[in-house]
């Protein structure tokens, strides 16, 4: 059923389809009573956090430095193991997954870091190919030179979506910050993600490049129905590019509101 939903949302390239949420009543992401503390019995980073993200929604996660935004995203992918609580992607429980099942679940979720984390000495195209590593062709997506033709075409299509098809052969360490982040997004698109997380994706970019990246996310969200959860310190970005804003404070969700009609001033209270 998720495969069908994926086809419906991702195959209609560029066409304005119906909002994805009407196709799938199951939320893309369900988080239930999630808790995490790094010190046994100490102050939790967050406690009993519960929220759903419907498919196709764009969510901004905001909060002061150290509020636990990164930890929350990382717990959702179990890069950091949560202490308790449940996580489900499209209704599939993620907390019980072990080894191979865990990797397959992770493969369904894109993650864009503040630092692009590309492999500097490899080509842009090879970096994008790596998005397919957990999806079946295995070792053949190690390097673009040994990849099956269909996968290369797919990688080129992903690069086209981020507007960098002409840089496919360039080495990743010869890119600007904004271009690198675009390639990282293309790598995530290569995963056929059902959901995309982005942890401060524009924090190390200049304003114009940052704006470009946020526009790209918004387009993927609108045109393709890609569910998006992004962390940002720029409140205008949070309001402009998200349907909904979640605010973390003192270990809990202090804010969960639609972004429409709000001003940055409404959100400032979260930082006091």
């Amino acid at each position: 059923m998720t495969a069908v939903a994926r086809l419906a949302t991702f195959e209609g390239n560029g066409q304005d389809g119906p909002p994805a949420s009407s196709l799938s009543p199951t939320p893309a992401l369900q988080v239930r009573r999630l808790s995490k503390s790094f010190t046994a019995g100490g102050q939790p980073v967050f406690h009993d956090v519960t929220f759903d993200v419907p498919q196709g929604q764009s969510v901004a996660l905001i909060g002061a430095n150290g509020a636990g935004k990164s930890t929350l995203l990382r717990c959702c992918l179990r890069l950091v193991e949560p202490d308790s609580g449940d996580i489900a992607f499209h209704g599939t429980d993620f907390v019980a997954a072990r080894r191979q099942a865990l990797r397959r679940m992770r493969a369904r979720v894109g993650f864009v870091f503040q630092k692009h984390n590309l492999v500097p000495r490899l080509s842009v195209l090879t970096n994008v190919m790596h998005g397919a590593l957990a999806r079946g062709v295995g070792p053949r997506s190690w390097f673009q030179a040994i990849a099956p033709g269909a996968e290369r075409e797919k990688a080129m299509a992903c690069l086209e979506q981020v507007g960098l098809a002409d840089l496919a052969d360039r080495r990743a360490d010869r890119l600007s910050g904004g271009q690198s982040q675009r390639v990282a997004i293309a790598r995530s698109l290569m995963q056929d993600p059902e959901l995309m997380f982005a942890d401060e994706p524009v924090a190390s970019l200049d304003p114009a490049a940052g704006e470009g990246i946020m526009e790209l996310f918004a387009r993927l969200n609108h045109d393709r129905g890609l569910t998006l959860v992004f962390v940002s310190h720029q409140l205008d970005h949070a309001l402009r590019y998200a349907d909904r804003v979640l605010g973390l404070r003192e270990g809990g969700l202090a804010l969960d509101a639609a972004s429409a009609g709000r001003t940055p001033g409404c959100l400032r209270g979260l930082y006091d």
């Binding site: 865990l102 984390n117 590309l118």
Partner: peptide
């Protein structure tokens, strides 16, 4: 970069090679 590969479901060998 290795963390990024792990995040998208890569194995240890993928991280080593890529």
């Amino acid at each position: 970069p290795g963390e990024a590969i792990a995040t998208l479901g890569g194995r240890r060998i993928d991280i080593v090679v890529c």
